[in-house]
């Protein structure tokens, strides 16, 4: 394997064309007609990949300034976030903080201030890193993605969007238009925990929990994890077993059973064994914190 010092990161060593379409329709047409064209939004992942030649491109289609893609909207029973909304905009949005506090908490923790000002939610999802910070919360919220192409629109549940590390179902001539998050009528507690080496490192393990308790029993719990499988994942079997139990028992069961829902590996950031052990603990911690917030009632509705 090449050491990263074999690369000069000052310049992008690839000849590119650069397109700044005026609207989404134009962007789709360029993407369709120009060979080797790739969509760029914040560029915080793509520019790095271009410098390292992990991605080869002939042209970039910049969608970061399209107002059609840069919005956060509260609808009837849902919140819709345009794919080019920056992580900073999401972290600071009053609508997101009030309605999707789990997403706000994750967005706040993503990268550094300089990165959050550039990075977009669409880019975070389409890059499809197993460690993507916005993915576990959006999985827990059962978010849906609206993909558009010149042929039309299709809706894909986020749970079916990722197909592997850096792989999604998005097609070459498709653009992610927005992320739609359904709101539930009831109050949930929430917690996002990310384990990392330094304050803006990429996650070794991340856990997102939404929790509702009734009369001491878990009425609903949604657990999603990042960096512990080829894609961000929901811990479905742990959830299923935890629902209906007394809260303390649910925590114990979910923490034990989460092992069956994940498949961590060894890599530069951590080891499979460490990730497995810490996933168990973080599920426990996140459920307790979510419970405290649920009781504190400053909760998601």
């Amino acid at each position: 394997m090449l050491s990263i010092n074999a690369f000069n990161t000052y310049r992008i060593p690839q000849q590119l064309k650069y397109f700044k379409p005026g609207n989404l329709q134009e962007a789709l047409e360029i993407l369709e007609s120009v060979e080797g064209a790739k969509v760029i939004a914040g560029g915080t992942d793509l520019v790095v990949d271009l410098k390292y030649r992990r991605v080869e491109a002939r042209a970039l289609v910049d969608i970061s300034r399209l107002s059609e893609l840069r919005f956060i909207k509260l609808g009837d029973g849902y919140v819709e976030i345009g794919s080019a909304a920056t992580i900073r905009e999401i972290a600071e949005s009053g609508v997101v903080k009030e309605k999707l506090p789990l997403l706000a908490e994750a967005a706040e923790s993503l990268g550094s201030w300089q990165i959050r000002n550039l990075a977009t939610v669409g880019g975070n999802l389409c890059t499809a890193s197993p460690a993507a910070d916005t993915a576990p919360p959006l999985l827990a919220y059962d978010a849906e993605l609206e993909l558009v192409s010149s042929r039309g629109v299709r809706i894909v549940p986020l749970g079916k969007f990722f197909t592997g590390p850096k792989k999604t179902v998005i097609e070459r001539a498709e653009i992610l238009r927005s992320v739609r998050v359904p709101l539930t009528p009831r109050t949930y507690g929430w917690c996002f925990i990310k384990l990392r080496r330094t304050s803006f490192d990429i996650a070794k393990v991340s856990v997102a929990v939404l929790l509702r308790v009734e009369g001491g029993f878990v009425a609903d719990v949604r657990i999603a994890l990042g960096s512990v499988a080829p894609t961000p994942v929901r811990a479905r079997s742990a959830e299923k077993l935890a629902i209906g139990l007394k809260f303390e028992d649910a925590v114990r069961v979910a923490s034990e059973r989460v092992a069956g829902d994940i498949s961590p590996i060894d890599d530069a950031r951590s080891t499979a064994w460490y990730r497995l052990q810490t996933s168990k603990v973080l599920v426990k911690d996140a459920m307790w914190r979510a419970y405290e917030r649920f009781l504190g009632a400053g909760a998601w509705r």
Binding site: T9, D62, S64, R88, W113
Partner: peptide
Amino acid sequence: TVLLDGDPVVSCLVMAAK
């Protein structure tokens, strides 16, 4: 780091055309 429209960003990841 520079300010882009008033916000700090890392200029090494911002395409000049943008």
